[in-house]
Every structure is written in C-alpha cells, then in structure tokens.
C-alpha cells in the first residue's frame, strides 16, 4: 500500500501516473487518461473472461459431459477426478484475484490523480482571483489563466466519467464468491462450505443434510427461511405454514417466520443435482465393472 493522499501533501505520493508539470495540461493529461481508460477496458474484459470460464467449468461439471469424463476414468477414484478439476478452478480463481488486486491499485492512483487535479485547479483559481485588475497589460495573462481553469474543469469531468466503476469490481467479486461456492458443492454435494461460520444448514455427522426435516425425504425444490437459514421442501413448508395460519416457527429451530421469508435455495438445489449425479455415476461404474468382471470370467 502506498501513502494516502493528504491534501497537497498527497501530490508527492503519485508515482504510476505522473502529474503534468505545467498548464495548459491537455495533451499530456489526455495521454494519462487514455491509460486509465485502457485499464478500465482491460478490467471489464478480464472480469467477464474469467467469470465466464469459471461458470463454464462449474456448469460443465454438472453436465453429462463431465459425468462421462468421470466414467471414462473408471480406474481412477472419483476423488482423483474431483481433485484435478478443483485444482484447475483454483488456479483460475487465484489468477483472477491477483489481477483484481492490481486493478485496485491502479484505481487508487487514478483517484489520487483526481485529488491532485482538483487541488491544482483550486490553486489556479486563487491565483486568478488575486491577480490585478484587468488592464490592457495583463489581459493576455488573465485569458490564459481562465483557459487553464476551464481546461482543468473539462479534464476533471472526463476523469470522473472514466472512474473504474467500483460496482463492477464488487459485482465481479460477488459473482466469483458465488461461483466458488457453487463449484464447491458440485464437487462436494454433502459437505459444509469452507469457512462457513454460521450454521446455516443442518449438519448431521459433519454432513449437510439433503433431507427435508418435515417429510424426512430427499428434497427436490428446496426453499430457505431467510431469518434462520434452514431449508425445506417447498410444498411441505408451505403446507406447514398453512396449518399455522400463515405465521409459523421454523420446524428446525422454532424461529418465527412468514411466507415472504421463504426464498429458493439455489445452492441446496445444486447440492441435490450434484448428489443425484454422483449416484448415477456410481451406478454406472458398478454396472460397468460388473460387466468387465463377467468378461474376465468368461475368457
């Protein structure tokens, strides 16, 4: 981390983007601006490139394609297949995170530049005000000064439109985190998310339960009570709520909730899909290895 800009003192802290040394500053400053603009474009394209790749990897894993991959590697334990996929994903995420960090640093420089520009402009304006009465002698000087100020104004407004949209970065980060979670549960449908400090999900024996606590059967359309995080089969929690006249307590922990506190639990849904996929893979593998066994016995 570099030093924070503190008023005019911050000017000295600038390094990556050099401040123009003289007015009018249009040509040099515009060069700087094009640089900022470049970062911004790079950033956006990078965000979409990496997140797209990650999404593809994640959805690919759920898809039949990957099932087939796992099946073809019939001699390798499923764990090994998962490990290699997990490694690929981790590399992608690491790369993304480090690029993201670089962009954040550049963005900090850009905002310092803006602070400096404002400071210089204010200084110029004071100079302008303090200068002598308009006379034939100083008319040219005053006009130059006024031009400089309006030039700086334009520059400033341009800068602010080029601001690396911090929301872009935040959105990307959120998307990334969601992806990491999705990826994790598609690989480990019954494991608790790493670093999950709050016990959102019912855990039995270190596993996340895929069973609806009301019917005790596997869920198909899981919904979550937002206030406590417990998860149920949609029709069952709705029936339960109806029997409790619209305002009930969580069947798992007795927290009070209303119908509008129920949302689709996409992560749980993914867990269920991934779990079913694993069952299919295991079935297929068993079938295939018994076929191989028969062949060997036959010869």
């Amino acid at each position: 981390m570099k030093t924070e800009p503190t008023g005019n003192g911050g000017l000295a802290g600038l390094s990556a983007i050099k401040l123009p040394t003289s007015f009018p500053l249009v040509p040099e400053a515009q060069q700087e601006l094009s640089k900022v603009n470049l970062y911004d474009t790079q950033f956006r394209s990078m965000v979409s490139r990496y997140t797209d790749q990650l999404e593809q990897t994640a959805s690919k894993f759920i898809s039949n394609k990957l099932e087939m991959e796992a099946l073809q590697l019939i001699d390798d334990p499923l764990e090994k297949v998962r490990e290699s996929i997990q490694k690929d994903c981790k590399n992608l995420i690491d790369e993304f995170t480090s690029s993201g960090r670089k962009i954040t640093e550049e963005e900090l420089e850009r905002s310092r530049y803006q602070v400096a520009l404002t400071a210089i402009k204010a200084q110029k304006r004071i100079n302008y005000r303090e200068s002598a009465e308009v006379s034939l002698d100083n008319l040219d000087v005053l006009r130059d000064q006024r031009e400089e100020i309006s030039c700086a104004d334009q520059l400033e407004s341009l800068l602010s439109t080029l601001e690396v949209d911090s929301a872009t970065f935040e959105t990307a980060n959120n998307r990334l985190q969601l992806l990491q979670e999705h990826l994790f549960v598609t690989l480990n449908p019954e494991s608790e998310l790493p670093d999950a400090e709050d016990d959102d999900v019912a855990i039995s024996g270190g596993k996340v339960s895929l069973i609806c606590p009301i019917s005790k059967r596997p869920m198909k359309n899981p919904v979550k009570i937002t206030v406590c995080g417990h998860c149920f089969e949609r029709t069952h929690i709705l029936e339960f709520l109806q029997q409790s006249q619209g305002s009930g307590f969580c069947p798992e922990c007795r927290t009070l909730f209303k119908k509008q506190d129920l949302i689709d639990d996409d992560l749980m849904k993914l867990r269920l899909e991934a779990h079913n996929r694993d069952l299919l893979i295991l079935q297929y593998r068993e079938k295939k290895s018994s076929q191989i066994g028969k062949k060997e016995n036959g010869t």
Partner: peptide
C-alpha cells in the same frame, strides 16, 4: 413449548 416437526 419445544415441539418441532424435525423431531423424529
């Protein structure tokens, strides 16, 4: 009191 549908 403490009845919850999740109780088996």
């Amino acid at each position: 009191e403490d009845w919850r549908p999740a109780i088996t």
